[in-house]
């Protein structure tokens, strides 16, 4: 007779923990992301989910997945490294901004005030993780034929591209020369989703359940448990940036 072991999906657990964290004052939360590199299969579903969630135009990517080949035949393997914004506790991008348009908010997430950003891109050069990209105003349908009739041409597909992004809890329609066009953009842990009680899009989409998210100030949270393990590392720790994204090796 077989026994079915009942185990709660970690997404449900993280969802519960999220509700618990949201009940606390913002200053008492410490949002942390943990990515288990042993589970990541390099499907890039998180990248796509992020693009769909934040309506990212061409050239703007918040969470690329880097692929690395290790060893040589016959002892060869591949490693995948998703790279969201590290939400550093000592972010090099913040002090360089000439108008304080980028800062750490009360939750400890590094955010950009699109209405204040002048688009100088100094913060992009300052980020050691290349986690910031510039919105040049391009669209995917730019230069494509205006097809009429049977196939979907630029005029209809274009509508999709103009659906507003809801980053930071505001609607940001893509209109010429208005923000976020001409601004620096970056991952913000899907703050608009968090505030609505939802996990970041990359977390819910991960097919291998390799990305975890939660409040590290909650000792009972999954992320607290994971980042206290010995196999945890952070990118470029030697720079003193103190990233809030941890990797499990």
């Amino acid at each position: 007779m077989t026994t079915v072991l009942e185990r709660e999906d970690i997404l449900l657990r993280m969802q519960e923990e999220l509700k618990r964290a949201l009940a606390k004052p913002r200053e008492q939360r410490r949002w942390v992301m943990v990515i288990d590199l042993r589970k990541c299969v390099g499907c890039s579903a998180c990248t796509i989910a992020c693009i769909a969630e934040n309506k990212l135009p061409p050239g703007v990517v918040y969470r690329p997945v880097m692929e690395e080949e290790i060893g040589s035949f016959p002892n060869v393997t591949r490693r995948f490294l998703p790279r969201p914004c590290m939400q550093c506790d000592n972010p090099p991008c913040v002090p360089v901004c000439p108008v304080s348009a980028t800062y750490k908010n009360a939750d400890g997430v590094v955010v950009i005030d699109y209405d204040e950003c002048i688009g100088c891109r100094y913060c992009i050069t300052a980020c050691p993780y290349a986690a910031r990209t510039f919105d040049f105003g391009n669209t995917y349908t730019q230069g494509t034929p205006v097809a009429e009739g049977l196939i979907v041409g630029r005029e209809r597909a274009d509508d999709y591209e103009r659906i507003p992004s809801f980053e930071y809890g505001e609607a940001w329609p893509r209109e010429r020369e208005t923000s976020p066009i001409g601004n620096t953009r970056k991952c913000q842990f899907c703050l608009h989703r968090l505030n609505a009680g939802m996990l970041p899009a990359c977390v819910t989409t991960c097919i291998g359940r390799a990305t975890y998210f939660g409040d590290a100030n909650d000792p009972d949270s999954l992320v607290s448990e994971l980042i206290s393990r010995s196999n945890v590392m952070r990118l470029k720790e030697e720079l003193g940036t103190q990233p809030r994204v941890y990797y499990l090796l």
Partner: peptide, 26 residues
């Protein structure tokens, strides 16, 4: 001309970040 939002350059005067070398330069 290199700025993403040329029309906002005045913000460096109205809300400068004194820590930023760029603001100091402006």
């Amino acid at each position: 001309f290199d700025q993403g939002h040329m029309e906002r350059i005045w913000k460096v005067y109205t809300r400068p970040n004194p820590q930023s070398v760029m603001a100091q330069m402006v």
